[in-house]
Design a protein around this nucleic acid. Structure first.
Length: 220
DNA sequence: TACCAGGTCCTCG
DNA sequence: CGAGGACATGGT
């Protein structure tokens, strides 16, 4: 078992199954983790919307925005395409960058309505979708094994001494891809577990005391 | 009060 | 390429 896999094993044992991506269940208005893969285009679309809204933003704020959309029954491809951009911006206001994001939501709605099974390249050509958002969509909405690298994974793996502090997105993703079996389920849980570690222990200002990776890490 | 949060685009060297 | 600024709200 290599180090990358060993870290996963420790995190899973510490935190348990995460059940990402959070989505809104039938007859509710708030998204939550329930461990079920999306089963239709509407549910996949909600994940895509969430992936855009959470760019550099706390998920709690995104929840408020998604709640507003649900309350108005607007979390549907054609409704996002048609809604007035100003009104959309005001509804997603809590998620921050609301003008940019309103624009991006409309662009991705147009794109997704025409292409329900996009490649990574195609996603990256949509304005507002960078590598992390593209991989989140591929992994969590479309069920394809593309590892999601984010601020947390960079921070954690650089503190562990497994990557350079300023290594590129693609470099770090490659490390995961070559060290792990290409399994959607595994990539799903691994990324979610890294977020959990990043939120609770490996923060900007780290709290190493009860970190499950303490023994593997020389940072503190 | 200042900093941070599940990034991306644009511009400039 | 890569660094640096803009985009913005809500929680601590």
């Amino acid at each position: 078992m290599n180090k990358i896999h060993q870290i996963y094993s420790i995190l899973y044992k510490s935190f348990g199954k995460q059940g990402w991506w959070p989505t809104t269940l039938e007859d509710e208005l708030h998204p939550k983790h329930h461990g079920k893969a999306p089963k239709n285009d509407k549910e996949r679309f909600e994940i895509i919307i969430g992936a855009i809204l959470t760019q550099n933003t706390n998920w709690k704020n995104v929840e408020k925005a998604i709640f507003n959309l649900n309350k108005n029954q607007l979390l549907e491809i054609n409704k996002i395409k048609k809604i007035n951009k100003k009104r959309l911006a005001s509804l997603i206001k809590p998620s921050g960058y609301f003008n940019q994001k309103a624009e991006r939501l409309k662009l991705i709605a147009d794109f997704y309505s025409k292409n329900k099974n996009p490649t990574r390249e195609e996603l990256l050509n949509v304005k507002g979708i960078g590598p992390e958002t593209a991989d989140s969509i591929l992994l969590y909405a479309l069920g394809k094994p593309s590892f999601v690298v984010d601020a947390y994974s960079k921070r954690i793996f650089s503190r562990l001494g497994l990557c350079d502090g300023k290594c590129s997105y693609d470099r770090l993703q490659e490390l995961f891809h070559k060290s792990l079996p290409k399994k959607t389920k595994l990539f799903n849980e691994y990324h979610a577990l890294l977020v959990e570690l990043g939120k609770n222990h490996c923060k900007t200002k780290p709290i190493c005391k009860e970190c499950p990776l303490k023994k593997l890490c020389s940072y503190s």
